[in-house]
Structure formats: structure tokens, C-alpha cells
Amino acid sequence: MMGIEELVNEIAALQRADLEAWIAETLVSPEEEAGAPVFPEMECARVRLICTLRYDLEIEAETLPVVLSLMDQLYDTRARLNSLTAAVAAQDESVREAILKAMGRE
């Protein structure tokens, strides 16, 4: 868990005002502890990613939500695909073969 202050100190390029704007736009979703936002590891990694997109790749502030939304959908789809793949892998061989066969017929 990291607070806003720690994150701003850790990531050199990060502007506090930007981070606060991202929170307001719910581009990042910190948790709350004693009335102050705190960032679990996954959210810290997300902030670092947004910093790369915004500062290094110079994606416009207005375009940033579009990029993130597409990326979130990609990761959601990946999570579902992983679940499905694991579910298929756990089946008997006959079931797996039937699924592979059906996919090939598409």
C-alpha cells in the first residue's frame, strides 16, 4: 500500500495534480484508509503505466481514458480467455478434442 505522497516521490515524472485528476476520473481506483486514498500494488503498477502513457508516450489527457478503456477491455477478455482455457484444459481428453474440432470448423 502506498499513499499519494509516496507515489509522487517514487515516480519522478508524476505530478500530484495529474494523479488527483486520474482518481477523480476513476482511471485509477485507490482504496481508502483513514480518509486518505491508498494504492495497493496493482494500482501502483497501473499508475506507473499511466505515467508512461501520459508522459513518455505523450498521450493527450483527453485521449488517455480511451486508451485505458481499450486496454482494460483487453485484460478483461484475456482473463475470461484464461479461465476458459483452464476450464477446457481440465476436461477429459474426449471433451478437449471435441472442442478443438468444433473450433476448427468455424
Binding site: 481506483s29 500494488e41 496493482m42 503498477a45 497501473r46 485505458l68 478503456s69 482494460d72 477491455q73 485484460y75 478483461d76 484475456r78 482473463a79 484464461n82
Partner: peptide, 12 residues
């Protein structure tokens, strides 16, 4: 994290 087990979706 996003590909990990504890992933919570951000997607609208």
C-alpha cells in the same frame, strides 16, 4: 496483476 488471479476489472 491484470493477468493474475486477483484481477479486478477496471473496464466500464
Amino acid at each position: 496483476y491484470a493477468d493474475g488471479p486477483g484481477y479486478t476489472s477496471h473496464a466500464a
